[in-house]
Each structure stands twice: as C-alpha cells, then as structure tokens.
Design a protein around this nucleic acid. Structure first.
Length: 476
RNA sequence: CGAAGCGUAGCCCAGUUUGGCAGGGCGCUUGAUUUGGGAUCAAGAGGUCGCAGGUUCAAAUCCUGUCGCUUCGACCA
C-alpha cells in the first residue's frame, strides 16, 4: 500500500496544494481557460456535478422547491437597494459598461448572487398571504472577481444553486433556513460520504444582509476547514429594503420574511480533499460518473471482450464502463485509480475458465475473487460498503482533528501546530475574533448545533464571561 | 492588491550566464509483437520559442515595454 503506483501526482504530505492541483488536472476534472480564475469543467468533472445536481434537486423538490431562472445581469440601482448586501459584494463584482458599440446609461452587474433579483420579482408577485410562501431555487453560474483563484475552491465564475424563499412569518422563514441546512448536511453524509459540523456563523462571518447564517463545515485531509454549504435567514431586512408587502388574513399590510441557501461546485473540492489519496481521486459511489469499470485482460484472446460485455449487461443497474482501449492492463488500473472509480472488475482467460472475476475496490485496493453469477449482488453490497467505509474514515479524521483550548497561549499553540478545529469558548465580541485572526490567521468557523459542551466559563481570548462554544480553524 | 516563480510541440522540460541549424522525454499516428500493476521495437507527424518594439551580419538567448499563468499572503463560497 505504501508504494506509489501513479507517477506524477505530488505526495499529499509533501505539498498539499500541489497534490490538489495535480489530481484536478490528472483526473481531467478541469482545464484552465484563457481567463484567469475561469475553469473549463471537462466531462469527468461535469458528470460529477450533474450527479450532485440530480441528488440535491430531488431532495429540494421533496421539500416543495420549484426551479426558476433569473437573468445574469443586475442593474446597479437594483443591487444598491440593500446597504449591507451591496457593501459586502461590491469589492468582487464584475460590471458590464458597454452594449454593442455604445456605452450603457446604467452599468450592469454580472450577478454575484441573486437576492436582489428575487426581491424584485417578489415585489411584483407577492400581494396577499395567498401568494405565500414562494419556495424557489435556481441552478446557474455566478461571478465574483476573486483575486486569488483555485479550481473548484475559488473560481471567478462558479456553478451553484441558490434557493430563495419568502414567507408570511418569521417562524416559517427560520424553520426553512434550518430545514435546508439539514438537507445539505444529510446530502453530504448520504451522498458524498462527508461528515460535516452544522452550526451558526458569528456576525462577523455571516452573509451580507442576513440576520443569521448557518453553515456546514467539512474537514479536509490537511486539517483545514471548508465551508461546504450555507443557509441564510434574512428576517424582513431585504423585504423592507425592497418594499415587499402583503395583506394578511387580518386585512393589514405586513412585511414578509426571506431565506436563501446555496451549494456550489466548491463541494467538488471537498470531495477531492476529503476522500482523495496519493493515487488520485476517490469518488463516493453515489456520485461517481462510472461506478464500475471492467478491465479485460488479454482482450484479443477469443471470448474475453464478449465476456466483459456479458458482465456489463449483468451490471446494467449500475453506471458501468468497459475499458477496451489497447492500453496495457497496468495502465488501465492506474487510470481507474486516478479517476477514482469506486470498483474495478478484472476479467481474463484465467477467470473465464474458472467462472470467476476479480473485483477491486478503489478506496482500499482490496481484491476479491467473485463467482461471475454472484457479481451483481456483490457489487451492490460493495458499493454500499465503500460508501459507509469512506464516511467512517472521514468521520474518524474529522474527530481526530478537534482539539480543546481554555487558555489563549494553548489555543495559539494548537492552531499553530495541529491542523484542525479548536473548540474554545467565546464572549461574543468581534474584537476577540479580530484578535484571534490577527494572532493565528484562524477564524471562527461556527457555533455548533450538535455540540453543547461548555468547556470553560470565560472567553479564551479576553477572559470575559463566555457566551458561545466556537469551532475555530483555518479554512479554504 | 503585495511577494515570489514561470511562459520553448498536446504535456513536462533542456537550451538563455557567454547571441551562431529548434532540442530531449512523455504523449500522438501507423505497423508488428504484447496484455493479471503505467509493455517493446520500428517508422512518422507535430514549433509565431507568450506578445510588441529595439540592438546586431545574426536573437529563444541581450535591452525596453507588455500580457498571461501558478504559488504564498491580505479579501472572499
């Protein structure tokens, strides 16, 4: 297991950033384009995104979501209607100033997110309690003019979904916010085999214009956190700023309440950095574009390709591919591993004579000899086992990366020496967050839902009475 | 936006110090032999040396400018 089978992938512990870039390129997920920070998502990468979309969309619709599509452009005057929002996004907005040969009278913002467009729509469509709620979502790309870019993790244009809902009551909006966060956390666990920490963001870290931002935070191999999905409760702030009102059953005008929530192609970066290894990508079975690759051995010998075809037919309930290219078997094995396909089936004259085939799982590289007749059942069970094992390994890593600190010197030492989350109490003042960030570069990741322990009575930084338990850490 | 590094065939790179025929490996194409962990041999195709000026008999190489990419910071999903 220690030997390195695939050349040209930088070792993970040697240079994690380079390892990540190598995988992204070698697995042919993306290519760089002629515009900085804009990536070409190639078939292998886009197929993963399509599977993510499918799984998420199904879960959204089960909660009553309807899909819409909003325009790419936002007039400057519209963007500026909510003060915190525009201030938050201004530094990274791309502008269109010319149409055809003429300058525009009002410049247009390329959407960095679509809150303002949805508000504009709701203003027209929402007049009565009978118009509520509206539970909308769109799949689209957005543009944020980032200075430093990395494939999937931070690109200037990225694909995502943004859900936008509007409700008659604050309670309904707040419930929707949590509901969607739970959809995300569940999706990460059940589909991507990624455990996450659910929690609330501090005021400093929350979305521009939100009253509360909730997050799921995942732990990467290198001990850095990745915010993998967010859900925002806007209260009635946006509605007030945009003048959205409705007449309720009491025959009086009321302001409605809104939410938004999103997951982006960034999550593909999480898949790479949570599950990948020194041989390449390791894809969770449920979103792997190819779940089983059949590799014929001595494929020119009579009957081998035919048998491979029979196996493929037997496995038609799964996403299966035969690699009948004229590369050597060793090449194909490495290729499968680099691309992260969960299961490989080897079939050659030797196996055919015995009525067996060899099944190898990507995540552990464990080999099984299986009777051909039992292959479909074996594969079904193995895909499930792989998913569960991947989740358990990721969970064990996450848990091994959580440290406690009650003393500030200790806190700084842990952040400096041990990659991961540090659990520490916080007084609630932004001054302490700023101090911690200045001293350590770590930020508050979240105030967790599922961890109510109170490890100290005072703030780790200022020693004033503690209000919240916070997970701190370095993040992507 | 700060700091560093890099632009030569699809990819990785040598050549630049000291100007003198455009090179190597991988990949690609064709054929043969191969096939249980990145096969071997033979033949072949592939170049605006990032771009623009300048110096020179002569520029990938020297000078000036410019564009782009990567990484690390600050900012952000």
């Amino acid at each position: 297991m220690a030997e390195k089978l695939v050349e040209n992938i930088t070792a993970m512990d040697e240079d994690f950033a380079q390892w990540y870039t190598d995988i992204v390129k070698k697995a042919e997920l993306i290519d760089y384009s002629s515009v900085k920070g804009c990536m070409i998502i190639k078939p292998a990468g886009y197929a993963i995104w399509e599977n993510i979309q499918q799984e998420l969309d199904r879960r959204f619709k089960a909660t009553g979501v309807e899909n819409v599509y909003m325009p790419l452009f936002i007039p400057e005057s519209l963007l500026q209607q909510e003060k915190d929002h525009v201030e938050g996004f201004a530094p990274e907005v791309a502008w269109v100033t010319q149409g055809g040969l003429e300058p525009l009278t009002e410049r247009l913002c390329v959407r960095p997110t679509s809150e303002t467009l949805f508000c504009d729509l709701y203003k027209n469509d929402v007049h009565s309690y009978r118009d509520l709620p509206k539970i909308y979502n769109q799949w689209c790309s957005v543009v944020r003019w980032e200075k430093t870019t990395r494939p999937f993790l931070r690109s200037r244009e990225f694909l995502w979904q943004e859900g936008h809902t509007i409700h008659a009551t604050a309670k309904e909006a707040s419930e929707r916010t949590i509901q969607m966060l739970n959809v995300y956390a569940d999706f990460c666990k059940e589909v991507l085999a990624i455990p996450t920490i659910r929690g609330r963001k501090t005021d400093k870290e929350k979305f521009a214009g939100a009253i509360e931002t909730y997050t799921i935070e995942a732990m990467m191999h290198d001990g850095k956190a990745l915010q993998s999905g967010t859900s925002h409760n806007f209260g009635d702030g946006f509605a007030k700023a945009f003048g959205i009102e409705f007449t309720d059953k009491d025959n009086k005008l009321h302001t409605p309440f809104q939410t938004s929530w999103g997951v982006s192609t960034r999550i593909i970066g999480a898949i790479i950095m949570v599950h990948g290894d020194s041989e390449g990508l390791v894809l969770p079975p449920k979103i792997a574009p190819t779940q089983v690759v059949i590799i014929p051995i001595q494929q020119k010998k009579e009957g081998v390709l035919e048998k491979a075809g029979e196996l493929k037919e037997m496995l038609k309930d799964f996403r299966v591919k035969i690699d009948d290219s004229d590369k050597s078997p060793g090449y194909k094995f490495s290729e499968q591993e680099m691309r992260g396909f969960p299961i490989r089936v080897e079939i050659g004259p030797k196996d055919i004579a015995e009525g067996k085939c060899v099944v190898v799982r990507r995540d552990t590289r464990e080999k099984h000899t299986v009777d051909i007749g039992e292959l479909p059942g074996f594969v079904e069970k193995l895909l499930e086992t792989i998913h569960n094992d991947m989740y358990e390994r990721a969970k064990a890593h996450l848990e091994a990366c959580i440290y406690d600190a009650t003393d500030y010197e200790e806190f700084k030492k842990i952040i400096d020496e041990k990659p991961g989350f540090v659990r520490a109490m916080w007084c609630g003042d932004v001054e302490c967050e700023d101090q911690i960030k200045a001293d350590t570069t770590a930020t508050s990741r979240c105030m967790p839902f599922d961890d109510t322990s109170r490890i100290s009575d005072v703030c780790v930084c200022c020693k004033k009475p503690a209000k919240h338990l916070v997970y701190w850490g370095k993040a992507y």
